[in-house]
Amino acid sequence: MREPQLLGSWLEAARARADAWKKALFAVLGALVVLNIFITPHHPHFVGEGLPGFWAVFSLGAAIAMVYVLKKIVYPVLARPEDDNGRP
């Protein structure tokens, strides 16, 4: 089955506007944090959850820490050639 060409070229055009998408992402993230000042959980399950920006900091910190620790420290220890099928 042929994929729709029009959709493909729209995606190609969207890709060329990467900077605009990046600005849009930052704007959305800023808006989410602002919303978080007004919308907080009614019954926080632990102390920090009620603070505005908690989940933003948690997610950003977790993503950065996870990538750093896994790619820089864990990966070099565990990596083996891809197609050796586990042979020592």
Binding site: L32, W55, V57, S59, L60, A62, A63
Partner: peptide, 14 residues
């Protein structure tokens, strides 16, 4: 949305 958005930012940073 906060969790997904800021994870995306984490990917961009890293």
């Amino acid at each position: 949305c906060l969790i997904l958005g800021f994870t995306g930012l984490g990917f961009y940073v890293m």
